[in-house]
Computed example of a mutant assay.
Amino acid sequence: MGRTSDARERILTAATDLFSLRSYGSIGVAEICAQAGVPKGSFYHFFESKQALALEIIDLQWGSQRGRWQRVLDGDGSLVGRLKELFAFTVEVQNLSLSEAGVVCGCIFGNLNLELSAGDDPMRERLRAIFDEQVHMIRRSIEAAQALGDVPAIDARGAAKSIVAQIEGTVMFAKLFNDPGQLDELWANSLRLLMVSEAQEV
């Protein structure tokens, strides 16, 4: 059993691992506690319910990813170069999953969204807010590039939404086929959405 001081962190780590690899509905509090090595009472000391735990994991995961997205999208260089780095990060995450867990885990936000699309409003609302924020971040970068004349006068919001959808959809295929190679077409397709060429990367 873990020390009281680290029990909460152990629960978060165990649940994140389980939610990344299996469906949310198939995982119970008892299994989370068993993997974390803590008694069930510890779980309810820190979390009101499995949903409360899942909401915190969603926030922690996006907090970490948001920082990476912001650093990339607000960085130096052309929009094309920055987006290419963002896509490389997506591939890196899936390759790491395959290397460490033996399977492509996909995107925890996308996985939960697909499973909970017909219910669980608090989690669905939180996931919707995350995807809206992703679209906004990319849209802002596209609009900034348009102001500089680096990107054609396309529908920035529509392009940003399509790029986020493409990332999620291609990651889903990578998970389905357990093959990060499914992500190879992601970059070229996004360039077509922006109506630019890779030569504009620099």
Rank of each mutant, 00 (worst) to 15 (best):
G106N: 06
A54R: 05
F46A: 05
A14E: 06
I163M: 15
L116V: 09
A153S: 15
F43R: 14
Q51H: 01
A144F: 00
Q166P: 00
F19W: 01
E85Q: 15
I58Q: 09
L194W: 08
H136C: 08
D17L: 08
F46E: 01
A153H: 13
R192Y: 00
W62N: 10
T4V: 13
M123S: 14
K175H: 12
V196I: 03
R192G: 00
D184S: 10
A188W: 01
A118N: 10
R128N: 13
D74V: 01
I32F: 04
G110C: 07
I138C: 08
L116W: 11
I11W: 06
R128A: 15
I108M: 15
L79Q: 08
T4E: 10
I142L: 13
G67P: 09
L21R: 11
Q134H: 02
G102K: 05
N95A: 03
N95L: 07
Q182L: 09
L112D: 02
K40P: 00
T13I: 07
Q182S: 11
D184W: 00
F19S: 00
W62G: 05
G149F: 12
S97H: 12
E198A: 14
G81D: 07
L194Q: 10
S42D: 11
S26N: 12
F89K: 01
A7G: 04
A160P: 00
G102P: 14
F47N: 01
F131I: 08
A15E: 02
L193S: 01
F19V: 06
Q65M: 07
V72K: 00
L148N: 07
M137T: 03
V164G: 06
D120M: 10
G75I: 06
G63M: 05
V93R: 08
E198I: 00
S197L: 01
A7T: 09
N178C: 05
A101H: 15
D17E: 15
F43M: 13
P39A: 12
L194F: 09
S141H: 02
V135L: 06
V164Q: 12
G75P: 12
I142S: 13
S49G: 07
I27H: 04
S64A: 14
G25Q: 09
A118H: 11
